[in-house]
Amino acid sequence: MLGYLLKRLTYTVPITLAVTVVCFLLVHIAPGDPLNAVAPADAPAEVVEALKAAYGFDRPLPVQYAKWLGRAVAGDLGRSVATGRPVAGEVLSAVGNTLLLAVVGGAAGFLGGTLLGCLAGYFHKTRIDRVASAISVVGVSVPHYWLGLLLTIIFSARLNWLPAMGAGPGGSGNWTWDLAHARHLVLPAITLSVIPMGIITRTVRALVAEVLSQEFVQALRAKGLRDGQVFTHVAKNVAPTALAVMGVQLGYLIGGSILVETVFAWPGTGFLLNIAIFQRDLPLLQGAILVLCLVFVGLNLLVDLIQPFIDPRMRRN
């Protein structure tokens, strides 16, 4: 097992490095000059040159990359071209909000998906299965940004029960655990939960149905175990794969919340990305993407590392 853990850990190093290269190159595949956001179009050549030198854009690419990486490792992601504030600070304060939304939405989706999936798998090819499968198809087919709009129309515009925008009263971006803030979390979290719910339902349904068809289940039944006890055995067999899928899905929620955050003006990384793209603030764009990818890579690593602790079969070989 130690070998597996070490191998998995080592594998993360080249991937992380490659991710930094891609994030770095993103700025350079962008058409136009990265300085367009700061320098006016009619700026004299020597001003442009001075700005280039100030931002380090006059050096060869590998040198720029090495310098950028060195600073990034030290926690310095440069300054936002638009606001002049350090990118690292802006991204970190936004990451907290995104994580909060992703964890709450993910938990709701995983809970609902596991429940529906178990029901559908246990009552395979019955009416219950068909209803659960229909819900899961809707979950994976619905454009979640549209669902967010529908929820806003119903619960904010019509019923006026829940707020439609922001993470707190009066547009406050700082999250605190109280009812006024929690009310802001409800609609975006529900919106974010439908895709993982659909996917987890499908996964768990297939896994449960497959495990139930195996011979050891028949043996357990023949031995006289009650349904509940049989299901404990099934759950133990389903858990490792289901948890692995959930881990990946949580990563997708963190990296993919930009659409939902935009609909609800949620002050997270997605919202930040949106600003960065439209102000062509490339250091901010680069920094936000880098941090999100590192979170994603870290999460995938974590899921793989805890696998052997959940699944005893992996410990043996």
């Binding site: 930009i258 994603f296 995938n300």
Partner: peptide
């Protein structure tokens, strides 16, 4: 290593 939505947004951004 990139969540797919993020990758699509990053490239088109």
């Amino acid at each position: 290593a990139f969540p797919s939505v993020l990758l699509a947004v990053a490239i088109s951004g």
